[in-house]
Amino acid sequence: MFSGSVWKNIAVLGIVALISGITVFTVHAITKGYIIKSESRYAKRFLFQVAPNANYTNDILTDTINIPKKYFSMLGIESGEIHLVKINGKLISIIVPSIAYDGYNGKIKILVGINLDGSIVSVRVVSHKETQELGDKMEVVKSDWILNFNKKSLNNLEPKSWKVKKYGGYFDQFTGATITPSAIIKQVHETLKYYEMDKSRIIKELDVFNEIKVSNNFEGGN
């Protein structure tokens, strides 16, 4: 059997762990609300940059619809939702998350804002591990390169133009880096193709959604 000192040790360790647990729990309980606020502020920072204007009336962070699983590989994602941008209940554009894997170092997560007609509102890189100062010109704070995507669509840019200039495409490469911009261009192109394929579902789903709302209101009125 254990000797007395072992029981004493267990007791001391238990008490310390308990006090530590209570302390962490208390601090967590106090800060929880604030942390959720900072998280959503952080997430929104990029979302509102790819919304067409600041006058949207819905909460673009939480107003979402799902993406069917079969499109996940196309977008490079494992989970994710389409964020909706609405003005007075009317859908004006969507924001699609997407991940490029062909970068120099790991995943490049991007957000693509798309107007309902299929043209790009804007693109932003949310996170990446590309080489600092060499491959990070796609950050909007570092250069205007990413703004080249604005207003582009499958209609006004043919498939062979979705490349860097070096390979006969439309987009500039950064000095010293072609891999990173190529990866982003390719993934933005894929995202637009996805929208073409899934467009009818998104608009239909929203219409059904709106109709339910309308009919509910109607019943409520009666």
Partner: peptide, 22 residues
């Protein structure tokens, strides 16, 4: 016990950083 104490304060500063400098 030292590790528990250090871990506790690390978690606390982590939570504070999430609030003030996410």
């Amino acid at each position: 016990i030292f590790i528990i104490i250090i871990a506790t304060f690390t978690t606390i500063i982590e939570l504070f950083m999430k609030v003030f400098m996410y």
